[in-house]
């Protein structure tokens, strides 16, 4: 089955286009920095230098795929994201569902959400430091906050998007309010919830790195700033690319979880040829 899928994927243009896209990007990067050595890029490490260092068992700058410190930074960031994302989802989804479901609850909670939401996450940094001691909690708090707003708002919009007919049909069939909540509100909002979760995990990474740059002694954000300060630009680029890969991977995990929970939607999209 896996082999069949793999073969089928190879018969479509997708993998080739992906490969071509990456090659094009890497090619430009190489030409600008190492090939033509354009003045704007002369301080940056080129792709050859970065990849050699990344795969070097005895790295010149002290960090590569073979050193434990690299994994320590990555894992610290991943763990923070996991905690922040779990809290934000655990609070944001129920909050959004209730706001969408109950007009009363929405009336008094929506203005607060809408006032807090536009405050940039960096503006919360001092407050986070004042409120929480240590280095770990403020960072997680900031990432949680950013992704909480996105999740709540998307869940709320998800409930709004449910066609009135489904509520009527359920009530006609004798559903009590808690049945409606379980069988109409939650499944009906799921597509929006998962779109929201994909955005929210991106936002979580974004604010985590910002927070790590301001405070912290571990994590990819810290690594990037630290490398910049120490003029070890190769490590800075390695940190950035690592961030790109783990970010992509985490978003993919959310997408897979979503597809698992919404088989009906996967089939619907498949029928539209997507």
């Amino acid at each position: 089955m896996t082999l069949y899928r793999f073969k089928k994927a190879l018969s479509t243009p997708t993998p080739y286009l992906m490969f071509f896209g990456i090659a094009l990007w890497l090619g430009c990067y190489y030409l600008f920095v190492e090939g033509w050595q354009l003045p704007r890029f002369n301080k940056l490490p080129g792709p050859v230098e970065v990849i050699t260092e990344w795969l070097n068992p005895n790295p010149d700058w002290g960090m590569s795929l073979f050193t434990p410190i690299y994994y320590e930074h990555t894992l610290v960031s991943c763990r923070r994201i996991l905690i922040a994302f779990a809290i934000a989802t655990g609070v944001g989804v129920p909050l959004g569902l209730f706001m969408g479901w109950s007009k009363t609850f929405r009336d008094y909670s929506f203005p607060i959400l809408e006032t807090l939401r536009p405050i940039p996450i960096l503006a919360w940094v001092p407050l986070a430091i004042l409120m929480f001691s240590g280095l770990e909690t403020p960072v997680i708090y900031l990432a949680t906050l950013a992704s909480l707003f996105v999740t709540t708002l998307n869940t709320l919009l998800g409930v709004d998007s449910i066609d009135e007919e489904y509520f009527r049909a359920a009530r006609c069939l004798g559903a009590k309010p808690h049945h409606v909540f379980m069988h109409v509100v939650i499944p009906g909002a799921l597509p929006f919830i998962f779109t929201g979760l994909q955005i929210s995990i991106g936002v979580a990474w974004f604010s985590l790195v910002a927070a790590e740059m301001v405070s912290g002694e571990f994590g990819l954000g810290y690594l990037i700033v630290d490398a910049y300060m120490n003029v070890t630009y190769v490590i800075m680029v390695i940190g950035m690319l690592t961030l790109g890969f783990v970010g992509w991977f985490s978003a993919a995990l959310v997408r897979i979880a979503g597809n698992r929970m919404m088989e009906w939607r996967v089939r619907a999209l498949a029928l539209e040829g997507r």
Binding site: Y166, R168, A169, C172, L173, G174, H183, P187, L190, W264
Partner: peptide, 20 residues
């Protein structure tokens, strides 16, 4: 006084739950 299963409505456009 309200909706109930003694009166079943079949709706204009389909109202089958898409997730079931």
């Amino acid at each position: 006084t309200g909706p109930g299963q003694d009166r079943m409505v079949v709706f204009q456009e389909t109202a089958l739950m898409p997730w079931q």
